[in-house]
Amino acid sequence: MIRVSNLKKKYDAVEALKGISFSIAEGEFYGLLGPNGAGKSTTISILSTILEPTEGEVSIAGYDLKQNPVECKKTIGVVPQEIALYNEMSAYDNLLFWGSLYGVGKAELQKRIDEILPMFGLYDRRNDKVKTYSGGMKRRINIASALLHQPRVLFMDEPTVGIDPQSRNLIFEVVEKLHRNGMTIVYTTHYMEEAERFCDRIGIIDNGQIIAQGTLDELRKSSMIKETIVIGFTNLTDELFEKIKTAWHDVKRMDQVVHFFSPNSKNDLSKIILNCNEAGLDVAHIEIQKINLETIFLNLTGKQLRD
């Protein structure tokens, strides 16, 4: 559905994108992760046709972005990070306006608005001015306005930033429904749990380059990160720690706490506990740190995602 090849973007001396390539299949949920300034928004802006690339090829639904920008625009829906609505207009009128820009007939548009508003839990407030809405409600209308022309591809740029749990859950439900219905979704987020929950594949972008991409499992494997079993003791001495080190080479001590690094924590946990008992160590607490996107990201980029 989307094919990006050697995409570059330069702003004077600054190279925002350094030749990224990826492709997204029809119906796929693709997550684009990266810290601020990594190049996510530049990529989304190019794919959504409002920014011209310096170099590279992009095609969406078979349309070349340079040759057929209008066709590309008709194919995509964009949910921008900022809430872009007319506050003095009602939610209904906003939807009517934004939908009309895509050439949807008025009757058809009204029908779609009547269908979409209940999905976002805003049907009863449809005639209220947007300025009277909470941040979460505005964000829901912001998303709804990108769906009226029934796009085949949806770009969502951090759609859940700064909203209440109720709105977030509603958005999650809608996003999952859209995905189930076969829509191709490109999703950028700072929230790892969202990426882990929704994304079929994830691309990690940093410093204008995609440094890793694949499914979560593929990323786990390729990152070579080990899971961590963290055990706190009450009687750990230097002598006892030496004994542990003899049995488990990949360990790190922090006072009475020892980090055991393991490729498979589930298999190794019982063996470690047994060794500790044999060495005469009293266990105070145990914690297993699984590999998640946060750790993969940290491992790959050396940065927290929200840096």
Binding site: I76, A84, L101
Partner: peptide, 13 residues
């Protein structure tokens, strides 16, 4: 400033 211009530019017009 309010982002609606950017959103207008996403549309095919």
């Amino acid at each position: 400033q309010e982002g609606t211009l950017k959103k207008l530019l996403y549309s095919p017009m």
